[in-house]
């Protein structure tokens, strides 16, 4: 009885994970994309719960929720198509990519089907949370702590990289926006455009004064 429900849940979650993972690259909106990815992660988290990895499953929920939230925020800050109102298609080499993706899937599936893996399931009386905790703060403490140090280094690096002032002055000094078309004139910001318009207007006014 319980087994059937586990199976049904598993297949449902697997379908959701793969389907929403695919939809990530098929939607116009970046926000929708990041939340679709979140759904994919949540579905995998549920599968982990089914596999008795209780801590990992729930931790994945909140880790990924924060991550995707940040992602969505970034998307909207930078991307030209924030709310997904305008259809767009920003891909390159789609066919090669699709082919490679499919090849990797086929290869890994073949390994899964034909490979021989030991059938050695976790013992029923295992307390996964406790064993994970003992491992993290016992034998593998060094690994765990180095992950912590790596995260700390990331935090520092992130702040340095993204801050306005680099070591040698403003980070965007002398920069110029890229062309709209390859090799074309650079895209101007609205402020620059405004300035340009005003200059033009002044010139015209000067001209009119001159004519009079």
């Amino acid at each position: 009885m319980v087994g059937i429900w586990t199976d049904i849940t598993f297949y449902l979650c697997a379908a959701i994970a793969v389907f929403s993972g695919w939809r990530v690259f098929r939607t116009d909106s970046m926000v929708r994309a990041s939340f679709l990815l979140l759904i994919s992660f949540l579905a995998v988290g549920v599968i982990m719960l089914l596999l008795a990895a209780v801590y990992l499953g729930t931790a994945l929920f909140f880790m990924m929720a924060v991550e995707m939230m940040v992602m969505a925020l970034f998307m909207v800050m930078f991307m030209m198509n924030p709310a997904g109102l305008n259809p767009m298609n920003m891909v390159h080499q789609p066919w090669v990519a699709a082919l490679l993706g499919f090849a990797v899937f086929t290869g890994l599936s073949l390994v899964a089907v034909y490979g021989e893996f030991p059938a050695n399931p976790a013992p029923a009386d295992l307390d996964p949370v406790r064993s994970l905790g003992r491992e993290l703060l016992g034998d593998s403490m060094l690994v765990f702590e180095s992950a912590g140090i790596a995260l700390l280094a990331t935090m520092i690096g992130t702040v340095v990289l993204s801050s306005h002032r680099g070591r040698y002055g403003p980070a965007n000094e002398g920069s110029e926006p890229p062309g709209l078309d390859p090799g074309g004139p650079p895209a101007k910001s609205a402020a620059q455009k405004q300035q340009q318009r005003e200059e033009q207007k002044e010139q015209e006014e000067d001209k009119q004064d001159h004519d009079q």
């Binding site: 697997a14 994970a17 793969v18 993972g21 695919w22 990530v24 690259f25 994919s40 995998v44 599968i47 891909v91 390159h92 080499q93 789609p94 090669v96 990519a97 699709a98 490679l100 993706g101 499919f102 990797v104 899937f105 290869g107 890994l108 599936s109 899964a112 089907v113």
Partner: peptide, 16 residues
């Protein structure tokens, strides 16, 4: 197989 599908889709996305 599910994991493989996720990896394949991810690779497609990362490349395209």
């Amino acid at each position: 197989i599910v994991g493989a599908a996720l990896i394949g889709t991810g690779l497609y996305g990362a490349l395209s």
